[in-house]
């Protein structure tokens, strides 16, 4: 089908492996995401925090650096310690960045396809509905992983390399907490954003509802707790649930709320609900029977 021939011919060349085709979706999506200067700036900012944390780890493990800071160095050495609390604060800050990145990116991922009837074009290709969702999910999973658990593990390894094997052996639970809680948070954010994107078909509205679910969820949780004199109202407060799971894994005092098993169950149920919504909405054509 050469341009100058203006005639049709079949493609005679090799094909890519079937399993890898869903990765085309995030590759094209990344180009769109990083077209926005605001997003590039915001992502760079979210990467700068781990860099700052890395510098802090270097300074706290390096007496010469602390000495060069004089009294401030002594003060810093007394106040800051690379321990569970240090990493829990890191996770909290990065979770915030992950949240706002999802607000900007997530709601437009599927709604753009649905708004212009693009789904039949995707699903008439040799990819399944699950692969389509996985491809869209990969956009958020990859971006958010970079600033949460990947950055967290790099900091953990940096600290381990400086503090020695004993510190590493004594703090393996910190690494596990970084991976598990970050993954849970990323899944909650990503699947909710995709579900709203598929459900509402309008990026702006989906974005607003996404923010509202978290902020109104906090208020609703407080209300339920006050009315029923319970702590179970926090099941509507996803960031609180994640913090409880993280604190229990890190071995620090958890915030008020249901027990860890209740938090994990609530999060899994919520993830299941998002998947169900995606299952119902991601179809080439909606059939009204």
């Amino acid at each position: 089908m050469a341009v100058y021939e203006h005639s049709y011919s079949r493609y005679p060349g090799p094909f890519t492996p079937a399993w890898s085709r869903f990765l085309v979706l995030p590759r094209f999506a990344f180009k769109d995401v990083f077209k926005s200067r605001l997003l590039v700036f915001f992502y760079a900012l979210s990467v700068l925090v781990p860099v700052f944390y890395g510098l802090a780890i270097y300074a706290l493990n390096n007496l010469e650096v602390l000495d060069s800071l004089g009294n401030a160095g002594d003060e810093l050495g007394r106040m800051l310690k690379v321990d569970e609390t240090f990493f829990s604060v890191f996770l909290l800050v990065q979770s915030g960045f992950a949240f706002w990145l999802t607000v900007f990116i997530g709601p437009g991922l599927i709604s753009r396809d649905l708004a212009n009837n693009g789904l039949p074009l995707y699903l008439s290709r040799p990819i399944s509905r699950a692969e389509y969702v996985l491809g869209k999910l990969a956009v958020l999973l990859l971006l958010l992983s970079g600033i949460t658990w990947v950055a967290g593990l790099l900091l953990f390894l940096l600290q381990s390399s400086m503090a020695g094997w004993e510190w590493l052996a004594a703090n393996l639970h910190v690494a596990a907490a970084i991976v598990v809680t970050s993954t849970l948070w990323i899944l909650v954010l990503s699947l909710l954003a995709l579900a709203l994107s598929a459900w509402l078909r309008w990026k702006v509205v989906a974005g607003l509802l996404f923010v509202m679910i978290f902020f109104v969820g906090d208020l609703f949780a407080l209300l339920v707790n006050m009315l029923f004199r319970t702590e179970w109202g926090h099941v509507f407060n996803f960031d609180q649930l994640i913090q409880i799971v993280a604190a229990s894994m890190l071995g620090i005092r958890p915030p008020d709320g249901p027990p860890v098993w209740g938090c994990v169950l609530a999060l899994l149920l919520f993830l299941g609900f998002c998947l169900l919504l995606l299952h119902r909405k991601i179809r080439a054509y909606q059939v009204v029977s």
Binding site: N116, G118, R125, P126, S128
Partner: peptide, 20 residues
């Protein structure tokens, strides 16, 4: 279905495209 779709080209009836 995937093997079948790999051999098919489909031009849908409705206005279908990807904006942007």
């Amino acid at each position: 279905d995937k093997a079948a779709r790999a051999l098919i080209g489909y031009m849908p009836e409705r206005d279908s495209f990807i904006a942007g």
